[in-house]
């Protein structure tokens, strides 16, 4: 077979997987998204046993497996832990490169928070820089209610 079909054109079936879906964030995380949407506040959740503050909130502590429900309000400022600059255009819809995203440790939280970096010179981003959340005008109860994190004036 191989010899006989070696010079034949290969047959390729092009297609799509198009799938609308939804994600219920659960009762606890709903409070986080409602606070973003209605009050432009970032809320973390605190473990009463090991004092870990997790953001975005989860209802189980990743460290000690306790159930979590105590909210703490954060001020939306934080420190850049690591980052990357995206130059690649993925075949799915998203942001237009080049853009940067980073992992931010929010003041008062013990976990990294991943988001886009905006109003920033891509050449001058640095680990350790101070950033703050900028909120979207039109907020819908999802993570993009935070438009991006931008450098705090004190960096400049």
């Amino acid at each position: 077979m191989r010899q006989e079909t070696a010079n034949q054109e290969p047959i390729i079936t092009p297609g799509w997987i198009i799938m609308p879906y939804k994600y219920s964030v659960g009762a606890l995380a709903s409070k986080f998204f409602i606070a973003l949407r209605d009050n432009k506040k970032i809320m973390g959740v605190k473990c009463s046993k090991c004092n870990l503050v997790i953001v975005p909130p989860r209802s189980i502590c990743s460290k000690c497996y306790s159930k979590l429900d105590e909210f703490v309000e954060l001020d939306g400022k934080g420190t850049l832990l690591t980052y990357t600059v995206v130059h690649y255009v993925p075949p799915v819809e998203g942001l237009k490169p080049p853009f940067a995203y980073g992992v931010i440790q929010l003041d008062g939280a013990d976990t990294g928070f991943t988001h886009i970096l905006g109003e920033v010179d891509l050449q001058s981003i640095d680990v350790g820089m101070r950033v703050e959340a900028v909120f979207n005008e039109n907020r819908q109860g999802n993570i993009l209610d935070i438009k991006y994190f931008r450098p705090l004036a004190s960096n400049l």
């Binding site: 994600y23 219920s24 964030v25 659960g26 009762a27 606890l28 995380a29 989860r58 209802s59 189980i60």
Partner: peptide, 10 residues
């Protein structure tokens, strides 16, 4: 809608 995947599993 009151639980996410993880909370359901838990």
């Amino acid at each position: 809608p009151d639980v996410n995947d993880g909370e359901l599993i838990n």
